[in-house]
């Protein structure tokens, strides 16, 4: 009754079985490798966003007067007056930039001036390249919580751009990132390309240390 399998089919099946086992083994191995690579990458990525272990300045760093730009009104118009503040002249440019941005995030002390950054916004990272472009990365609320208005958006953007470029002449352009990514605009109006200092809507007239900036 029982039909015997022909010999060549038997060999074929065995060969297939062996092939399948080998392939499965390789497959499991490859999957394992990929998983370990992804894991490693994740660890590296998390490291990059870890809070700085070193403080932004040393106790020996001398104080440095800076002007921080905040929205305020003049004769019923929104402008961007500057407020005098002090940071510390740390050796690293990025640390000085972070201190300036911290002041921007903290908001103004002078009555009549308004915070320029929407609430819940955090500074994620600052990177300055050789060409003098500062890439400043804020958390999502910078865009999501922005109340809008073209002029008001200009005030937010140039509060950041002017505060950095005015006080740190090494920074020539500022590129604002939101949540680690490029965004076309914050609230639908102003292009977030690398932007230069624009003092036309401020009460400050001349950039300081112009000679220094050019000598560098």
């Amino acid at each position: 009754m029982k039909k015997k399998l022909p010999r060549h089919l038997k060999f074929g099946l065995i060969a297939l079985g062996v092939g399948f086992a080998v392939t499965l083994g390789l497959f499991v191995d490859v999957i394992g490798r990929i998983q370990s690579i992804v894991k490693e990458k994740k660890e590296v990525a998390e490291d990059a966003f870890a809070p700085p272990k070193a403080p932004l300045y040393n106790q020996t760093d001398p104080p440095m007067p800076v002007k921080i730009f905040f929205p305020g009104s003049e004769a019923g118009d929104l402008i961007l007056p500057a407020e005098d503040q002090t940071i510390f002249r740390s050796a690293e440019l990025a640390n000085r930039a972070k201190q300036v941005l911290q002041k921007v995030l903290e908001g103004p002390k002078t009555p009549g001036l308004f915070p320029s950054i929407p609430k819940d916004t955090k500074l994620l990272e600052v990177f300055i390249d050789d060409a003098g472009v500062a890439y400043v990365d804020f958390s999502d609320p910078l865009s999501a919580n922005h109340p809008g208005g073209m002029l008001n958006e200009q005030a937010t953007v140039y509060s950041i751009v002017n505060s950095l470029t005015y006080n740190l002449p090494e920074i020539r352009q500022v590129k604002i990132l939101v949540g680690g990514a490029e965004k076309e605009t914050l609230a639908g109006h102003l292009l977030l390309l690398p932007l230069e200092m624009d003092l036309s809507i401020t009460n400050v007239k001349k950039p300081p240390q112009e000679q220094v900036a050019h000598a560098n």
Binding site: P71, L78, G132, P147, L193
Partner: peptide
């Protein structure tokens, strides 16, 4: 929209003339 409630707020905007032609 102005953070100051008493601001008039209106403006006419044109594109910035020397936009993005800087040293970088």
């Amino acid at each position: 929209y102005s953070p100051n409630k008493t601001d008039a707020g209106s403006s006419i905007f044109v594109m910035k003339a020397d936009f993005n032609s800087g040293p970088a």
